[in-house]
Design a protein around this nucleic acid. Structure first.
Length: 254
DNA sequence: AAGTTGACCTGAGGGC
DNA sequence: TGCCCTCAGGTCAACT
């Protein structure tokens, strides 16, 4: 995509998480893509001025397609100029994805309010400890809050808490600085290992080259209720918090 | 202010 | 086979 000129945006269904702006196609035609980036789980397609902000939600995927006819859940194609043109298609059955434009994306409310990137400088145990001070929210939910730290989803929150030996329901304000050091290290380790493995394919996740991830083979607790804890062999437990599952070892995590 | 719940959607899988 | 229920990788917005 980098360096390409946008020939067209073909919108078949505007109804994503937020409606695709009616004038977006006209705004994009003829513009040049300068770079591709990311903040949390938001994808940034930097143009000569401003950027597209995209999100894949839970079920979205972007693919390069040729003459494949669009399916019922393929809301748009971004067409790049060329001979032949390159069509990049979003498939998003649940329509939780997003396609937005901003002249100043880093100031956009969705981006500007995000916490630090967990794999970059500025994220450590001291930061988490400070964020948690005086708060009663369960630590699992604090980690899912993008304003605290960007881009941690349910799988990696649970895995990092296992690695750090912290119970997912523990109130965030009742965890000491030393344990937050361990938690921050666990988050960095889990995310790094997951990236190396190409991500986690529970069902249909695939990387941009179409290949699945393999981190699911390294999951210690997520989705493994009843299975043996890899550390102590006690059965992994499942709980529900705010309508979402949490997994943990009742013997190792407190 | 912080915490909790509901909302947005479709599809898959299990039980009956 | 079909119907109904539950659950799913996200996260914002509206409540309490």
């Amino acid at each position: 995509m980098r360096g390409a000129r946008i020939a067209d945006l073909v919108v078949r269904d505007r109804r994503l998480r937020w409606p695709i702006a009616a004038d977006l196609g006209a705004r994009l035609r003829g513009r040049t893509i300068k770079d591709i980036g990311r903040r949390g789980k938001y994808l940034l397609v930097w143009l000569d001025r401003g950027a597209l902000i995209m999100h894949l939600g839970m079920s979205g995927s972007l693919r390069v397609v040729n003459d494949t006819p669009p399916g019922p859940h393929d809301p748009f194609d971004l067409v790049l100029a060329g001979n032949p043109p390159v069509r990049i298609r979003l498939r998003d059955p649940r329509r939780f994805g997003a396609l937005l434009y901003s002249d100043d994306p880093l100031s956009h409310p969705l981006i500007a309010t995000l916490g630090p990137e967990p794999l970059e400088a500025g994220f450590d145990g001291a930061y988490l400890h400070e964020q948690a001070r005086g708060r009663t929210i369960a630590i699992r939910d604090l980690l899912l809050n993008g304003r605290v730290v960007a881009g941690i989803g349910n799988i990696y929150a649970n895995e990092a808490l296992f690695e750090a030996g912290i119970h997912p329901r523990r109130p965030a304000g009742r965890i000491g600085a030393g344990r937050y050091d361990a938690l921050a290290r666990a988050i960095v380790a889990v995310l790094s290992r997951a990236v190396s493995a190409g991500g986690t394919t529970l069902k249909d996740f695939a990387a941009s080259d179409g290949r699945p991830g393999y981190f699911q083979q390294q999951l210690c607790v997520y989705g493994r209720a009843g299975g043996a804890c890899p550390r102590c062999a006690a059965p992994v437990a499942r709980l529900t918090m705010g309508g979402r599952s949490g997994y943990y070892c009742p013997r190792c995590q407190h």
